[in-house]
Write a protein that binds this DNA or RNA. Structure first.
Ligand SMILES: [Zn+2]
Ligand SMILES: [Zn+2]
Ligand SMILES: [Zn+2]
Ligand SMILES: [Zn+2]
Lengths: 146, 146
DNA sequence: CTTGAAGCTCTAGTCGCTAGAGGAATTAGG
DNA sequence: CCTAATTCCTCTAGCGACTAGAGCTTCAAG
């Protein structure tokens, strides 16, 4: 049984983040000392390490919640878990495709700018007229990170 | 002079977003009708189209604010504008590199799963132990979209 | 002149944290 | 045993870039 700071160090998850995970029900409410401080077990450490790894791979917390509840039923088929991972892979691939288009558009802007005055700047010019992009970079997909 | 709905349609920016841009000072406060409704000019339309295009390319609003203020001084050197675009390109490239690592890790998980029970699921297993990843996908960079 | 669409303001919610205030508890050293 | 440093506690607010909704007013067409 160890306090939150040691759990944080062991997993690389910051202390306020651990409390946040507890608040949203991703981690169970731990035992407390007489003085009201949280005390964790090895089991919670492993659960948090799982969460951290899944976050590093870009899974949203909701997906992680599902994965955790699946992993509590080891006898069942893993089809649902695999499906969550496949969906995440699809998200990552879509994001990459979009970023590749952005990269190309930015690169072209920079390649064509002669670095003179603003009046002649290709960057400013292209931003003012998507027609000059020639290739298409889709519209901004509503925002997700990782 | 046209109302906000027509501006929204012309630029593809949603009405509440236009009001939000005004609120944060990215768009000027427009004239109003006697009944207090916003009336826009062609100039604002062009400014908003610029913003929209830059957003589509992933520029954060703060960068767009700088680009707009630069474009108001056409005689100056465009070095600053080019630098903003270069930084954005670097951001995009970094994000792509990270996503490529994620994609590979996810793909490997899925490739190695025999799709049996949860107890044997490679997805669940790997998420519980980053050692099984072999290759490295760094820690999650604090979140930005696009 | 009536109706329905489009406009207005304001508040709160999204995601996944992060930062800070203002205090209580624990731990190590003397 | 006492003090000082560190860690812990709760609570609220903020980030970016919007989105959604309530409850109202104004405009344009028929
Ligand atoms: Zn330039
Ligand atoms: Zn474009
Ligand atoms: Zn599986
Ligand atoms: Zn890993």
């Amino acid at each position: 049984m160890f306090p939150i700071g040691r759990l944080a160090k062991a997993t690389g998850v910051k202390v306020p983040t651990i409390r946040y995970y507890e608040q949203i029900g991703l981690l169970p409410e731990p035992e407390r000392t007489a003085g009201n401080q949280r005390l964790y077990t090895q089991g919670t450490l492993e659960r948090l390490a799982f969460i951290r790894h899944a976050r590093d791979l870009g899974f949203p917390l909701e997906a992680i919640r599902e994965l955790l509840s699946l992993s509590d039923r080891p006898g069942q088929s893993c089809a649902a878990a695999d499906e969550i991972a496949r969906r995440q892979l699809a998200v990552v691939e879509a994001r990459m495709a979009r970023l590749a288009a952005l990269r190309d558009a930015l690169q072209r802007m920079l390649d064509h700018c002669a670095s003179g005055t603003i009046a002649d700047c290709r960057v400013i010019e292209v931003l003012g007229d998507h027609g000059l992009c020639a290739h298409d970079h889709g519209a901004a997909e509503a925002g997700h990170p990782a």
